Simulated scan of single mutants.
Amino acid sequence: MPEHPARVAVIDCGTNSIRLLISDIADGSKTDLLREMRIVRLGQDVDRTHHLAEEAIERAVQATREFAAMIEMFEATQVRFCATSAVRDADNAAVFEDAIEGILGVRPIVLAGLDEARASFLGATRDLEVERTLVIDIGGGSTEIVVGTGEDVEWSVSLDIGSVRLTERFLTSDPASVAEVIACMNHVDSVLAPIVSQIDPVASFVGVAGTVTTVAAHSLALPSYDSATIHGARMSIGDVRAACLSLVQMSVADRRALPFMHPGRADVIGAGALILDRLAELLPLATDTLVVSEHDILDGIAWDMVST
């Protein structure tokens, strides 16, 4: 008899965005029913204050109310809410967690950096051929780098470099000045320097999350954001880096005018693109291709919900 599908709902609340995935999972396959995203900038000023701003909490809470209605409509039987970098760093995280629990009836799980990395890896590689792969997940507050084969994680790290964090810290002009860009690049390089020596060269390189997918859309000059075109796209490292540097040099208004750009990413994509550029330059890659995946931490958490 076929296994009765489990209908799961996963919410991932990061530094910049909050996202919902509702899926049916059975017999080792996953059917996605709904993906939604809101830009709420929960990590507004957290790098400086270590405190979640009241207005940022309210934006995330309002989005969660909307997601709760969708979860109820789809009659999901299992619900998990995961929070990452911004909530990890905040001294008033409990206020946010209480508010979310009041809406959903489940307490948020604040993922440690390495748990976040593992979930991103599992989500990104589940549908790929089993080969040793390096996955990068560039978020608003942190970046995860994971190496593994199949579902087996060999090595992982979570670094406090993200698009929101570095925009607030370094790229304060519009457009960013040359001096700001150089300072940001030097900082990213200094964070990556002790990391890259720990990784043996890999021949499969996968990137997930909004920075990578937006850079891909820019490189492909898409007339609108097209998930079907972006997911699984194989892009030369040279083209990726050219698109990164193009975005860094733009003003926020020019980025916002790009037809594929989510308006909530326009002010921070420059820092995210710089992180991607430095990763592509410094990581020990035995390939000149980046594979772009729209399957990420949400998918990894969904799989984990039915395996635990």
Rank of each mutant, 00 (worst) to 15 (best):
Met70Thr: 14
Val8Pro: 02
Gly113Ile: 08
Phe96Trp: 11
Ala271Arg: 04
Glu66His: 07
Leu220Ile: 08
Ala183Gly: 09
Leu21Ile: 14
His51Thr: 11
Met73Tyr: 13
Thr229His: 00
Pro201Arg: 11
Arg118Lys: 10
Ala63Lys: 07
Met261Cys: 12
Val135Met: 12
Ala56Pro: 07
Thr213Asp: 01
Ala6Arg: 13
Thr15Arg: 03
Phe74Gly: 03
Glu66Ala: 06
Val147His: 07
Thr149Cys: 08
His187Trp: 12
Pro284Asn: 06
Ser219Ile: 07
Ala179Met: 06
Asp27Thr: 08
Ile182Glu: 09
Asp239Gln: 12
Glu101Gly: 08
Ile237Thr: 08
Pro284Ala: 04
Val157Cys: 03
Leu134Asn: 03
Phe170Glu: 00
Phe96Arg: 06
Gly139Ile: 06
Ala179Tyr: 05
Val292Leu: 01
Ala60Asn: 14
Glu180Cys: 09
Arg38Gln: 04
Ala94Trp: 04
Ile297Thr: 03
Phe74Glu: 10
Met73Thr: 15
Pro2Val: 01
Glu97Cys: 14
Ala217Cys: 12
Thr211Ile: 10
Met185Arg: 10
Phe205Asn: 10
Arg65Asp: 04
Pro263Gly: 08
Cys82Lys: 00
Thr49Ile: 12
Leu282Pro: 04
Leu122Met: 08
Pro259Thr: 03
Val95Gly: 10
Asp254Ala: 13
Thr289Phe: 08
Ile136Gly: 04
Gly113Lys: 03
Ala63Leu: 05
Thr49Val: 10
Leu21Phe: 11
Val157Arg: 09
Ala273Gln: 02
Glu129Val: 15
Met1Glu: 11
Asp174Cys: 10
Ser236Asp: 08
Ser173Ile: 08
Glu36Thr: 13
Thr15Phe: 01
Val291Ala: 14
Ala119Gln: 09
Ala273Pro: 03
Ala9Met: 13
Ala228Arg: 05
Ala243His: 11
Ile109Cys: 15
Leu285Ile: 13
Glu3Tyr: 01
Asp91Gly: 11
Ile22Met: 00
Gly102Ile: 06
Leu111Ser: 09
Phe205Val: 14
Ser236Tyr: 01
Thr308Ala: 14
Ile301Pro: 06
Gln44Phe: 07
Glu55Gly: 03
Arg7Ile: 13
Gly162Val: 01
Val8Arg: 01
Gly148Pro: 04
Met185Asp: 14
Ala179Asn: 03
Thr31Gln: 13
Ala69Lys: 14
Glu58Asp: 09
Glu131Arg: 07
Thr211Pro: 02
Gly28Val: 13
Ala86Gln: 05
Cys184Arg: 00
Glu129Trp: 02
Thr229Ile: 05
Asp137Ser: 11
Thr213Asn: 06
Val106Pro: 11
Ala76Ile: 10
Cys13Ile: 09
Arg65Gly: 00
Gln198Asn: 12
Gly14Ala: 07
Asp288Tyr: 02
His4Gln: 14
Arg7Pro: 03
Ser163Asn: 09
His4Lys: 13
Thr308Gln: 10
Cys244Asn: 11
Ala93Gly: 10
Ser158His: 02
His187Gln: 10
